[in-house]
Design a protein around this nucleic acid. Structure first.
Length: 352
DNA sequence: AAGTCGGGGAT
DNA sequence: ATCCCAGACTT
């Protein structure tokens, strides 16, 4: 398809990003960054990536660590299933691949938390393997360049985009060194172009190496491509979080179930709205509590619903000052902040 | 095909 | 407010 890849690669080498901390020849670093970057912007990951790598310098360190330590470093990053899969993936690579990431994308895809696009990115950046990615950036670049209408989340559109992405890869090359260099620049170029030039709003078409044959530009449809996801009103939910402290000032946290929202994190015990917290805590945790202040409610927004949280302060009554159950434990405020907790709880602790 | 899963940056 | 981010996985 003309010299799409050549123009892309030349632009990448001239104007792309070359100093991101995960742009290294190391499959562990590349994999870690790709997982962190799923549905997460570069600027956010820049804050988490070095801390994580410092605590887990190698894949073996990560595989050997307790899941709670992984979740603590992931706290605030969101999509916590990624952290659980990351941990499981590290153990799988140690167990099944002698601690070395496989270089074939179809093999990489079998690992937990790695789909087709992430597998291709890992293979391309780590091993120079010729494989196509299709993330949000690429979907935007390609739908505009080829003038593809229809929401990319729909299967038929997505299949069309995968096919196009494959067809635009650099030509196969017998020189393996050159081939590796080309696929890396091509893949990075698509990401960089989408992030810095072909942006969702106000794209910088005057600086784009693909502008000359971009279908969206020729028909002035940059603003409507890619086709938006049909939006629906998101539901409202509400909960009361019990901020319970004992005589030492420690805070009672409850480990959330492994699946569902905030899976595996430590959070405050919750009580449904219009339910008596005293009776509920007595029934479920066997603790005798007394309520004090009800803090002002605040709204936490997720992708698929809005959660109104009412923090209810309470203290322990009687002598069972440190009683714990299977899924609860007492944390000092500092220990809570260092653990894997959801962002709203972090805000509550800081506000008190 | 549609829903689940976070939090924040950019506008 | 709204959109969307180097998506994967379950239903």
């Amino acid at each position: 398809m003309s010299d799409f890849s050549l123009r892309l690669r030349q632009w990448q080498q001239q104007s792309g990003r070359h100093h991101l901390p995960w742009q290294v020849n190391d499959a562990y670093c590349v994999w870690l960054s790709e997982i962190m970057l799923q549905q997460t912007q570069v600027s956010t990951v820049l804050d988490y990536y070095p801390r994580f790598l410092q605590r887990f310098p190698t894949l073996a360190d990560l595989a050997a660590a307790p899941l709670d330590d992984v979740l603590a470093l992931w706290s605030g990053l969101g999509y916590y299933t990624r952290a659980r899969n990351l941990h499981a993936c590290a153990q799988a690579v140690v167990r099944d691949f002698a601690g070395q990431f496989p270089n074939d994308p179809t093999l990489i895809t079998t690992l937990p938390g790695i789909g087709r696009s992430t597998a291709a990115a890992i293979a391309a950046f780590s091993y120079g393997y010729r494989a196509a990615i299709l993330d949000g950036n690429v979907k935007r670049v390609l739908t505009r360049w080829a003038g593809i209408e229809g929401y990319p989340g729909v299967k038929a559109i997505e299949n069309q985009l995968w096919q196009l992405a494959e067809s635009l890869l650099p030509a196969r090359c017998s020189d393996s060194q050159q081939a590796a260099s080309e696929i890396k620049a091509h893949t990075q170029g698509l990401m960089d172009l989408g992030a810095t030039i072909c942006t969702p709003k106000n794209p910088s078409c005057l600086l784009c190496p693909l502008a000359s044959d971009c279908q969206a530009r020729q028909s002035d449809r940059q603003a409507v491509l890619p086709t938006r996801k049909p939006k629906k009103t998101i539901p409202e939910k509400a909960t009361v979080m019990i901020f319970l402290r004992n005589a030492q000032g420690d805070l009672l946290l409850e480990k959330r179930p492994p699946t569902g929202i905030w899976g595996g994190l430590w959070s405050l015990p919750e009580v449904a709205l219009h339910t008596d917290p005293v009776a509920h805590i007595a029934d479920h945790l066997g603790l005798n509590i007394a309520l004090s202040t009800t803090l002002p409610e605040f709204v936490h927004v997720f992708t698929h619903y809005r959660l109104t949280i009412t923090p209810q302060l309470a203290q322990l009554v009687g002598s069972d000052c440190a009683k714990e159950s299977a899924n609860t434990a007492w944390f000092s405020p500092a220990a809570a902040l260092a653990a894997g907790i959801p962002t709203p709880l972090r805000k509550i602790i800081h506000s008190i």
